[in-house]
């Protein structure tokens, strides 16, 4: 199946960014060896795992309880907190084959944007964890804008367009605003495709608003969705997506 599109949106977490390399022995091992306190490594790993049991997943801790990582695990040590954020960034991976796929899409002339359900800035806008990842990995070459419920962030000058503020992927309102903005640029929703892993935020609400949708299962398969297609590797994009004239 070939999809002809003018615009392509990518989800961030577990799609552009894969957290598979973020292993606790590496994260806390590197951090506390750098701090010159390697004997604390087993205690810190254990505390972080206990926090995971308290909140259910590392994702939930990071979304809503990051302060507790600092207090319960890192003992509010400012040096450890700063290093934690640095190491965390270093250990995040990119989806396999992503960069090749982005090069291809750009060469086709397909417009690219990151569409992330980033409800809170983990850091100031523009230096938040998503923006930093995209900048540090050189992905700004492909994505100059990041659409989020906190606004549309320009990754070049860090300016924020408040048009999207308060709208979310989960309730679909963010896709309503996106569809309207694309229409103003002459792109209909059926000429746009959204790629992501989460049915409830990346696929189903976008599909219901007429966007084409591709579920990416390369990192995790989160179950049934309304996606038009499923891909396991970004390599597949090169034979699926073509520029619509």
């Amino acid at each position: 199946m070939v999809m002809e599109v003018k615009w392509c949106g990518f989800d961030y977490g577990q799609c552009i960014m894969e957290p598979g390399g973020l292993r606790n022995p590496r994260l806390y091992g590197d951090l506390y060896r750098d701090l010159g306190r390697p004997e604390l490594i087993p205690d810190k790993i254990r505390k972080y795992r206990i926090l995971k049991e308290k909140y259910g997943s590392y994702g939930r801790i990071k979304e809503g309880h990051r302060d507790e990582i600092y207090s319960f695990v890192l003992d509010d040590d400012p040096e450890a907190i700063e290093l934690f954020s640095e190491k965390e960034q270093e250990l995040l991976d990119m989806g396999e084959g992503l960069e090749d796929a982005l090069k291809y899409l750009q060469s086709e002339g397909i417009e690219l944007q990151v569409v992330s359900e980033m409800k809170k800035t983990l850091g100031a806008v523009g230096t938040d964890i998503v923006s930093r990842f995209l900048k540090q990995r050189g992905l700004v070459e492909y994505f100059t804008e990041l659409v989020t419920p906190q606004g549309k962030i320009n990754l070049i000058d860090n300016s924020v367009d408040d048009k999207y503020k308060g709208y979310t992927k989960k309730d679909g309102t963010l896709y309503d605003v996106l569809a309207q903005e694309l229409k103003e640029r002459g792109i209909e929703p059926h000429e746009a495709v959204m790629i992501g892993d989460k049915p409830e935020t990346d696929i189903d609400p976008a599909h219901e608003r007429g966007f084409k949708t591709i579920k990416y299962t390369g990192f995790i398969d989160l179950g049934p969705s309304k996606a038009d297609l499923e891909i396991h590797s970004f390599e597949e994009i090169k034979r699926i997506l073509k520029k619509k004239d």
């Binding site: 990192f219 995790i220 398969d221």
Partner: peptide, 10 residues
């Protein structure tokens, strides 16, 4: 066993 979820290599 209730369910098995793959996440990357884990």
């Amino acid at each position: 066993l209730k369910q098995s979820d793959r996440e990357g290599k884990k």
